[in-house]
Design a protein around this nucleic acid. Sequence first.
RNA 1: GAAGUCAGCCGGGCAAUUGCUUUUCGGUCAUUCAAUAGUUAUCGAUUAUUACAUUUCGAUAAUUAUUGAAUGGCCGGGGGGAGGAAAGUCCGGGCUCCAUAGGGCAGAGUGCCAGGUAACACCUGGGGGGCGUGAGCCCACGGCCAGUGCCACAGAAAAUAUACCGCCCGGUUAUUCAAUUGAAUAGUCAGGUAAGGGUGAAAUGGUGCGGUAAGAGCGCACCGCGCAGCAGGUAACUGUUGUGGCAGGGUAAACCCCACUCGGAGCAAGACCAAAUAGGGGAGCAAUGGCGCGGCCCGCGCUGCUCCCGGGUAGGUUGCUUGAGGUGUGUAGCGAUAUACAUCCCAGAUGAAUGAUUGCCCCAGCGCAAGCUGGACAGAACCCGGCUUACAGGCUGACUUCUUAU
Length: 124
Amino acid sequence: MAEKEACFKRHARLLTAADFSRVFKDAQRSSDRLLTILAANNNLEHPRLGLAISKKNAKRAVDRNRIKRIIRESFRLHQADLPAADFVVMAKPVTKQASNSEIFKSLEIHWNRLRKLCEKSSSA
RNA sequence: GAAGUCAGCCGGGCAAUUGCUUUUCGGUCAUUCAAUAGUUAUCGAUUAUUACAUUUCGAUAAUUAUUGAAUGGCCGGGGGGAGGAAAGUCCGGGCUCCAUAGGGCAGAGUGCCAGGUAACACCUGGGGGGCGUGAGCCCACGGCCAGUGCCACAGAAAAUAUACCGCCCGGUUAUUCAAUUGAAUAGUCAGGUAAGGGUGAAAUGGUGCGGUAAGAGCGCACCGCGCAGCAGGUAACUGUUGUGGCAGGGUAAACCCCACUCGGAGCAAGACCAAAUAGGGGAGCAAUGGCGCGGCCCGCGCUGCUCCCGGGUAGGUUGCUUGAGGUGUGUAGCGAUAUACAUCCCAGAUGAAUGAUUGCCCCAGCGCAAGCUGGACAGAACCCGGCUUACAGGCUGACUUCUUAU
């Protein structure tokens, strides 16, 4: 896995309702103006990503697609540094107005914060 | 050159780096299946023997090797990967399942005529009406002399008509003039009148002449309207001749009448595979046990373990993209469109791919410049045909009007 660090295949995604509800039930939380990210340690050897962009927060399909693609791209580039955990990224109503670079910047801060939080909770 | 009308097209471009998805080819690994060959074991036949061993052949099982196929993982190479509206989900079809297979009612829809189409509320051509100098554009464009209903405000009156002001005639009263009779003015009573005024979206067809006490289709001419004939046209309708003298307001996206059309639900349709858990059916085993019914026996019910069976949830596979398909040429047609031949394969995701970053160019705005900022509407979800709505900017063609020059 370590050599192919820029890949983002199906096994790195949350696919079933069970996976999502597990994260929502017991998670580390990190949020700012644009996004909220939930994280919960999994028993695998790599991190996984789930997206929760509701129609309520981004009405147009174009906006939803754009937000999802940016989050996925950012996750792909940072996943080598992330701990083995499941992450669920949630958008807010203002997210659709933000530019691409603003969202990338916000995500970078979140990843750093969550890495520390997960390390603390797994060692405890 | 300016203003405008119609039709069609495009929807930023190139490069680098790095991802996703699908397909194809090659390599590699794993699993499964098949074939062939070898080894071992067992069984049968054969040979041999007193009987085995032995020889040869066949079957079954295990295992090894090779080859092929399928599935999955990884690596490498090649190809494809959002729209003109993918949107709204407003119509019409295909497809699937259910119901019915005949007729009627109810309900919904359509509404000038002809054609096109799988079908339509769409499109084409034609007719009629309205708007525009014009190119052109717009029209829910059947029927209120089958019936029922509604018509605010204003106005006298909103429909079997009716008389507020006015106009006219007659009676009568008063006043004045003239003086038996009469005339004028004012009031009042009865009648005639739809010309004029005023109200309104709308008031019993319009204009002119005649006519009359005043008026009135009361009469006449023209226009409008109704009816009938003739001519043209497939038809809608148009033209024309005669005739009736005027029927009688609007509203049918009011009920309704007439003609025609229409089963219901939808890809979360439907088909297949199928864990875990609980429960159902069957077979076997063990105990001849345990619990309940009972005083006891028999018997009945529940209870253990193993295997099999069907239903079926999560989940997965399929449906799923070759189609009323695109492009080109010819033919038929005014056209929508049809047809023949050639050629092409052009997204198939599913917690949902089609992207991100950087550079250069292009366009727009700001600025003297360097430069800075921005680049529309918007994202496939079974597939087609339409309609409607949104849209920065740009390109092409045809036509109209005005102005200038020739």
